[in-house]
């Protein structure tokens, strides 16, 4: 299965959440790869604690160079050998493969041509053959990367491969409007996809949303609020729920919510069990939400047609 992660705005935690999903799925036994299509700022290496690929790799063998036809094959990093983090090396027993296809340092956006689409189709089909879960991390917004993936997934060789879309957005008014626009608006995913030959309804049904940095109003974090503050928060949250529903990104298409957690926000790296239970720096709710998301990504039920 190919899971395409995108967001309309930057700073939604798309990459950090995507990497954490990848890790958790691999720990549960799935073979997972993470493909960095965020050509302008490939940061997956940093999130996965791979110093040599922190901002993409040097040497012109990354994803960008491969798609542009400058490299015969893209570099693939076996993360169980490269992650510089205690507890993640070597591969824990029972874990599946976890492989990163890093971007190029100093890459950038580029217009899509026919050859590039061919290379993209060939790569993604091969990965879907070898991995249970292929996470493609796109640049934010209506990027060339988005065009490329929409063009590739409609080709005959990829059409039979299950593709699912995740749109990440923060739990704010502007982010909700932007996320809905990216999915259903002019030149959004459904619009662009339909123009390229995707079935409109089918494509719409394969999009789900993930809310990030969502304040959990029942948590201890908010226990010390004065009554007026608490009331205001409740009311604002209810407003946002109504707005999301009106924009058709309400509960029926919600795959998960990641609570506001300073560790996730500031460290922008993997959250392990040890962060939650031994070091006690991350909230248990964050770990639980990521686990739930990793399960739902692979599960068929949350993706049933509406």
């Amino acid at each position: 299965m190919i899971l395409i992660a995108t967001s309309d705005k930057g700073g939604t935690g798309r990459s950090v959440t995507g990497c954490n999903i990848a890790l958790r799925c691999a720990l549960q036994g799935s073979n997972v790869c993470y493909v960095d299509f965020d050509f302008g700022s490939p940061t997956a290496g940093a999130i996965f604690h791979v110093e040599s690929a922190a901002r993409g790799i040097l040497g012109g063998q990354g994803m960008h160079s491969f798609l542009a036809g400058e490299a015969a094959a893209p570099v693939e990093l076996d993360l169980w050998r490269h992650m510089d983090r205690a507890g993640l090396r070597p591969r824990p027993p029972g874990a599946g493969r976890l492989v990163l296809f890093p971007g190029d340092e100093g890459g950038g956006e580029f217009p899509v041509d026919e050859d590039m689409t061919d290379r993209c189709v060939r790569l993604l089909r091969r990965l879907a053959e070898e991995f249970d879960l292929v996470i493609v991390d796109l640049s934010a917004g209506r990027s060339y990367a988005l065009q490329l993936v929409l063009e590739a997934t409609v080709r005959p060789a990829l059409r039979p491969v299950l593709a699912r879309w995740l749109v990440f957005h923060r739990w704010t008014r502007q982010h909700i409007i932007a996320a809905a626009g990216l999915a259903y608006g002019d030149h959004g995913i459904v619009d662009t996809g339909a123009a390229k030959g995707h079935d409109r309804d089918h494509l719409r049904d394969s999009i789900r949303f993930v809310r990030t940095a969502v304040p959990d109003l029942d948590s201890e974090q908010f226990a010390g609020l004065v009554p007026t503050q608490a009331a205001w928060l409740q009311e604002t949250d209810a407003d946002l729920q109504r707005l999301a529903a009106r924009r058709r990104i309400g509960r029926s298409v919600l795959l998960g919510s990641i609570p506001l957690d300073p560790v996730l926000q500031w460290r922008e790296q993997l959250i392990l069990e040890s962060d939650v239970w031994t070091l006690r720096i991350a909230n248990p709710q964050t770990g639980a939400a990521l686990d739930e998301l990793a399960k739902d990504v692979m599960d068929d039920d949350p993706w049933e047609g509406l």
């Binding site: 493969r97 053959e129 070898e130």
Partner: peptide, 27 residues
């Protein structure tokens, strides 16, 4: 290796195959 991988891709992406593998196996 690159030629080899390319040939395997060519066979595997044939329209005669339905791409619905019973399980995933690394090459």
């Amino acid at each position: 290796g690159a030629v080899c991988g390319r040939l395997l891709d060519q066979v595997q992406e044939s329209p005669l195959l339905d791409q619905r593998l019973p399980f995933r196996a690394p090459r």
